[in-house]
Structure formats: C-alpha cells, structure tokens
C-alpha cells in the first residue's frame, strides 16, 4: 500500500513539473522534395489547417514560413514546436527552367531572383534550429552534394536530424538507397501527400527530439 502511494506521489510530481519540450523544428532539403507538403500534413493533422502553397514548379516556397505552437502527442509524450518551412537549397537557379512550366520570362526572372534570396535565407536560418527534418525525394539520387552539405552542416552544429525519404507512393522511390547514403541517421520513408507511414514519422520525431 505504501509502495502504491509512493508511486502515485512520484508520478504526480513528475507530471506536474514535466517540462513540455518547445523547439524550433526546421524542414530542410532540396527544391521539390515535398517540404511544404509535409508541413501541410503536420499542420492539418495537429491544427486542422494547411501551411503553404504546393505546386510542381521548383522553388514554390521562396520565403521562410513559420507556424507557431504546434503540439503533437503520442501516449504520454508531447512535443511542442514552431514549424519552420524553408525554401529548397540549390546550387543553381536558371529562370529558363521555370519557363518550361509555362511562366512568362518576366515572371520566371522574378521567381529566380526570389529563389536565390530564399536559398540564402534557408542557410542563414540553420543556426536557429533545434531539430531538423531533412526531406529528400526518394525517387532522386540521394548522393547529391546539396543533401550531403545540408546534413554535414547540421552534424557540425550538433543539431539532431531526422531524414525523411518522401514520395514512397511512387514506383521509382528507393528508400534503401537513401538509407545506405546516410547510414548513421534514422530514415523514415513516407508519402507526405497521401499520409503513408506518417505515424512512423511522428514516432521518429519523438525519438530525435528525445
């Protein structure tokens, strides 16, 4: 009886003083990997609203987007964070590539200019992050230097990383290739668009945040 009472008191005080984890969670990755689609999925799941516009034209997100006070729960665990959706990091931007999607030269040039600024902002924001989800397109080559540079910089800054291999709903997706490219990280294969494996993603997030 004394033991049960002691246990109850301990649990009561533990829960009373448990600090809710509140962090800045960044979504990083190359353009068109599905960062905003994942941001929308997280916001829809926990806030009931979406976060940003998604199109198939690269560099749709050209400014840092922040959604504050998102709390996710799993059993007794809870993390609260500000979600930071960042523009895709690239080493080259050619306005003519946007014209292939039907944009006029003027609009394409404007988009290219905004996209270059977006890449710079993404890199500047690296220092502000507490945890980062690196979103990679599982249908593309994971060994691209942009991926390696982003992850290497996060490692150097000792920022916890969860790698998401997105677009697993597509036949060309190769999760194992992403896993073998970054064997020291936890890699979760998901489809942010259709919600495949999204629970595994949240579990992975709990593990990384600690």
């Amino acid at each position: 009886m004394a033991n049960i009472f002691e246990k109850f008191i301990k649990t009561f005080f533990k829960n009373l003083f448990r600090r809710k984890k509140h962090i800045k969670l960044g979504l990083y990755g190359p353009p068109n990997a599905g960062k905003t689609t994942l941001a929308n999925k997280i916001c829809e799941d926990w806030l009931g609203e979406s976060m940003g516009k998604v199109t198939n034209i690269p560099h749709e997100t050209r400014e840092i987007q922040i959604k504050e006070q998102i709390s996710i729960k799993s059993g007794k665990k809870e993390i609260s964070f500000n979600l930071v959706d960042t523009p895709g990091i690239a080493t080259k931007i050619d306005y003519e590539d946007f014209m292939k999607f039907g944009l006029t030269a003027t609009k394409a040039k404007k988009r290219a200019k905004e996209a270059t600024k977006g890449v710079i902002d993404s890199i500047r924001w690296l220092d502000n992050m507490d945890t980062v989800v690196v979103v990679l397109d599982a249908t593309k080559d994971p060994y691209s230097q942009v991926n390696i540079t982003i992850i290497g910089n996060l490692e150097a800054r000792k920022i916890p990383v969860l790698i998401v291999a997105n677009k697993v709903d597509l036949k060309k997706a190769k999760i194992k290739k992403v896993q073998s490219a970054f064997p020291q990280y936890h890699v979760v294969g998901i489809s942010a668009k259709y919600g495949n494996n999204i629970d595994e993603f949240y579990e992975g997030l709990f593990k990384v945040v600690g």
């Binding site: 931007i93 890449v119 710079i120 540079t149 150097a156």
Partner: peptide, 13 residues
Amino acid sequence: KEEETELIKATME
C-alpha cells in the same frame, strides 16, 4: 562544411 554552405550562399548572390 561551413565553407561549402558559404560557397552556395556566395553563388546565389
């Protein structure tokens, strides 16, 4: 590693 990101930033500029 930091120089690689600086190279990308400088390229964008």
